[in-house]
């Protein structure tokens, strides 16, 4: 994989982490109880650290004309490549748990492949992230069981979150040229491998939590081409405000 394409590959992964970290940090001081507040911030911090490491490396691969901060704070919506799932709002705690559980599985599988590549920087990032994601998956799965098999209300809310978020899952195993290049270099699993991994884990965990996995729903697509839901615009407006308002300032 040449540097420019590898950089694009890293930006995609970095964008998933960055946007999820943003959503996680929105939960700060809004948790159902203080211990969970702290837990969610921890997970957000892990994702932010991964985003930073990936964007720093992507900036370097690009040739150094942009910094990681430029990538995070100066790109417009259409140049962001995070999955639409990652930008979905924290409608309620169930939406957070479902979104993050599915993304934890995606990141686990992704980092597993990346941890074995010869590129020391990337395998280093992936090895560290792999430990973090193992814990994320455990934490979100724990909640999935409690919400799915808790009260009638929690069950209903969680099933609603699953149903409303399901159309965004298809993107996680979609492929384009960059993916094919990454797969060829063994940097990423194939779409089929990813889909099988996700579906096996999701259906098993959902059923353990007495939740239904939706069937034959239309899967939306577009983030690889910079297409998003309307939520991303607001998110970036907030995230990029200072850098945009004071372009000459250093912080």
């Amino acid at each position: 994989m040449d540097n420019l394409n590898l950089s694009k590959f890293c930006i995609r992964l970095g964008d998933h982490c960055l946007i999820m970290a943003h959503r996680q940090s929105e939960l700060c001081s809004n948790g159902p109880f203080l211990e969970e507040d702290i837990a969610q911030i921890n997970l957000g911090l892990d994702l932010l650290g991964q985003a930073e490491a990936l964007l720093i490396y992507a900036a370097k691969l690009e040739g150094g004309t942009r910094t990681a901060d430029d990538l995070a704070f100066r790109r417009p919506e259409r140049q962001f490549h995070n999955f639409m799932l990652t930008e979905q709002p924290n409608t309620d705690f169930a939406f957070v748990i479902v979104r993050q559980y599915i993304m934890s599985l995606y990141l686990l599988k992704t980092y597993q492949a990346l941890s074995k590549v010869e590129d020391d920087t990337l395998s280093g990032i992936a090895l560290k992230a792999l430990k973090e994601l193992t814990y994320h998956e455990r934490h979100f799965a724990m909640w999935l069981k409690r919400l799915g098999d808790g009260t009638e209300e929690s069950h209903e809310r969680t099933q609603t979150a699953i149903n409303e978020l399901w159309m965004f899952v298809g993107e996680l195993y979609e492929e384009d040229e960059i993916d094919f290049m990454a797969q060829k270099a063994s940097y990423a699993p194939t779409g089929i491998e990813m889909k099988t991994f996700l579906m096996e884990h999701i259906t098993a965990k959902f059923s353990e939590a007495t939740l239904e996995t939706p069937h034959s729903i239309y899967m939306t697509t577009g983030s690889k081409k910079g297409i998003h839901t309307e939520y991303l615009g607001y998110l970036l407006t907030e995230m990029q405000y200072l850098q945009r308002a004071y372009p000459d300032a250093k912080w």
Partner: peptide, 15 residues
């Protein structure tokens, strides 16, 4: 604080 032992060990870890 936690509601069960699995959650207790995770909450303790995070705190």
């Amino acid at each position: 604080h936690a509601y069960d032992k699995e959650m207790a060990i995770q909450n303790a870890r995070d705190l």
